[in-house]
Design a protein around this nucleic acid. Structure first.
Lengths: 196, 196
DNA sequence: TAATTTCGCTACCTCAAGTATCGATACCGA
DNA sequence: TCGGTATCGATACTTGAGGTAGCGAAATTA
């Protein structure tokens, strides 16, 4: 009952898609890394991937969705390590800080987030396909309610992206440590739970 | 020795500029509020202000700089109220949260910040003309070193913008209170000072 | 072999930032 | 009163990027 291929029919007819998604993701990150988000046009990404622009638009309906899928592929699920809530939070913060520091990822992250601000459909996609899975995973692992986890994400990701956006560089380890320390104290200390 | 008009020559020759800056700022905020940042084109802003687009480009070299000036005008300096560091920080956080919640301001803030991510010249302008004045003002008022004030700004503004960007709504008061509580505890408690 | 779908390619549309140019207007100094 | 100068509004334009349309060719299934 594996269903790796389909539910009803074995495979759809016609020429199958070539397996270039990974190549496109790699081309996306390296182009964003070298040229920045705005200058990483779909034309350039396609050229670097050795693929036609129309092929990209056949698979992803917009640049924003391409970036979202690329980030999901690059990040994967949170590697939950550690026993207690404090250790889980701390490792999560260090994990996402390291990921945002990897070439291309931070820029793509900030870029698609920026686009979403004035693009409500993209914002819904970003919220549903990107934030929600991590939120649910963290709600389970941390045993915290939705509003507290959303607050956690806002603080951690918001801070890291703001630093990246203002300086062009990822946050240094010492500041990441301070961020983790601040957040852990907040969630450990019982006062003012954060959210209605 | 007032020199309200000039230092050397009384006034530059030619037709003086009409005093429409305030009108343009108001048109910018209302257009951004109604249409979002990306759809608030310079054409539309000019039309709403009752001014030609070329007039805007004669005064601001780019849309980004127009937004920066508009935000500086809308925000003004931090209204430093309260005696101790804790009160100053708390009132500053509530002040910027309220400002970001005003119609148009949060969107313009997030939009120009987003643009700056992949536009290094705009990033320098944003950093020098926008962040630096507030940073210096806060360094003076709070008696904290540069790196700690930068960390403070990253956390507060980053969190508020992330919430605004993901939900389209400003952060609710209860969460702003939690943010203030968390930050105050961090700066009051002596552990892990945040920054090298 | 026929149907179907993807492929690369080229050309195109739309929209927005920013530029160029024009006659008209407002202010200065002589 | 008359140049000189810089702004004004208006129109047209250039450039770049997201996204679409239509083509013949290739790959797969039935």
């Amino acid at each position: 009952m594996l269903m790796t291929r389909a539910t009803a029919s074995a495979r759809p007819p016609g020429r199958p898609r070539s397996g270039v998604n990974a190549v496109v993701f790699a081309a996306t990150l390296s182009t964003v890394h070298e040229l920045g988000y705005a200058r990483a046009t779909v034309d350039r990404i396609a050229a670097r991937a050795g693929v036609a622009k129309t092929t990209i638009y056949r698979r992803w309906p917009s640049k924003g969705e391409l970036i979202v899928d690329c980030l999901l592929d690059a990040l994967g699920p949170v590697p939950l390590e550690g026993a207690g809530q404090a250790e889980l939070m701390s490792s999560t913060i260090r994990w996402i800080a390291a990921k945002i520091g990897e070439p291309g990822i931070g820029d793509a992250f900030a870029g698609v987030f920026s686009d979403a601000v004035s693009d409500p459909p993209l914002r819904k996609i970003l919220s549903a396909r990107f934030q929600d899975p991590y939120r649910l995973q963290l709600q389970d692992a941390l045993g915290e309610p939705e509003n507290r986890v959303l607050f956690f994400i806002d603080v951690v990701v918001g801070t890291l992206l703001h630093r990246m956006g203002m300086t062009g560089e990822p946050m240094a380890d010492a500041d990441v440590a301070a961020l983790a320390d601040m957040v852990l104290r907040h969630f450990a200390g019982g006062a003012d739970p954060g959210g209605t």
